[in-house]
Each structure stands twice: as C-alpha cells, then as structure tokens.
Amino acid sequence: MKNNDTHREFRVFMLPDYEKEEEYLREMHKDGWKFTHVTMPGFYHFEKCEPEDVVYRLDYNPQSADKKRDYIRMFEDYGWEYLQDLAQFSYFRKSADEEDTEIFSDNASKVDMMRRIFTKRMIPVLTVFFCCLVPNIVNILSAGITHVRPYECILLGILFGLFGLYIGMITHCFVGFRNLARKYSGEE
C-alpha cells in the first residue's frame, strides 16, 4: 500500500533478528520514510520525511507497569525517543549525529538481553513444539496413515505444515542466536 505520504510494508523479523530490524528502520529513514509504528504480525508503517540518518534500537526488557515510566524516562534522559512496544520489545530512535548511539555499552549486557529473549520467548516456543506438536506427529505416524477421510486429510496437512514451519523457525532462531553469541563474545 503506497500513497503520497504514507507507506506500509510487511516484514517478518524473528527473535534473533532485532539488529536486522534496527538496520531496516534506519535504511528506510535514510530513504525518506520515517517509521511511525509497527503492528502484528509485521506491518511497518511509515510517513514521508526528509531523508536523515537516524539510529533505531530495540531493547527487550519486560517490566511491570510501575517500572515502565522510569524505564522510558531513563532512555529519554539519554536522548532517545521512545516509540512503542511490540511483543515486549521496546523501540527507540536517536539522530546518528548525537553522541552514544548504542543502548548497550558492553557485551555483557547484550548477552543478558539475548538470554532474556531466549528464556522468555524461545523456551515457550520450544515447549509448544515438543509437548504438543511432536507427540501428535509421533502418534499419527506410529498408528500408520490408512483410510483417511477427506477432512482428516486437511487436518493432517495443517499439522504437518505447522510442524515444518516450526522446524524452520526453530532452526532459523538457533542459527541466529548462535551468530549473535559469537559476535558478542568477540569471535567475529
């Protein structure tokens, strides 16, 4: 969807892809599209602006409502504009000309953030996968597929489709987290 001064794009960034997402938003801003908001499952909304180099950063640090104000206030004190939260990720931006355009000043805190994402988001995904999908698939395969009715065919298709999607997602996430871990430990 594109008209003269607003623009919407669909993008999927998975759990370990937050740095790619930051880079994407920065490039859009350089092209004269200023990020306004993002909605599930991945619609990015922009408005036309003067091309500018603006740094975008995502933080993952879910906190209770009483601490949220302090959290946002601290980033604002450091010169960051708070944009929104989506799926517990907080979005910030700051002009690239300003000083300190990083939200983490050491690798230890980058690793901490990655760990928070892994435990709070990745583990639930793995739990659903191993406790719901895998047992179902195993049951079906061990019973053998014979004489299926048409509607069962559709259900099976959905189940196997989900299974494949999960395998793909999980693989992508593990590779992504491993690459981030290498990067943060200075191996790259």
Binding site: N61, Y71, S105, S109
Partner: peptide
C-alpha cells in the same frame, strides 16, 4: 567510561 541506558537499566534491575 560511558554507561548506555540499556546497560544501566539492566544492571540496576539485576
């Protein structure tokens, strides 16, 4: 030494 906000917030919480 500069301490960025994400690092600051994370360390204070911990």
């Amino acid at each position: 030494i500069t301490i960025s906000p994400g690092t600051m917030y994370g360390t204070l919480s911990k």
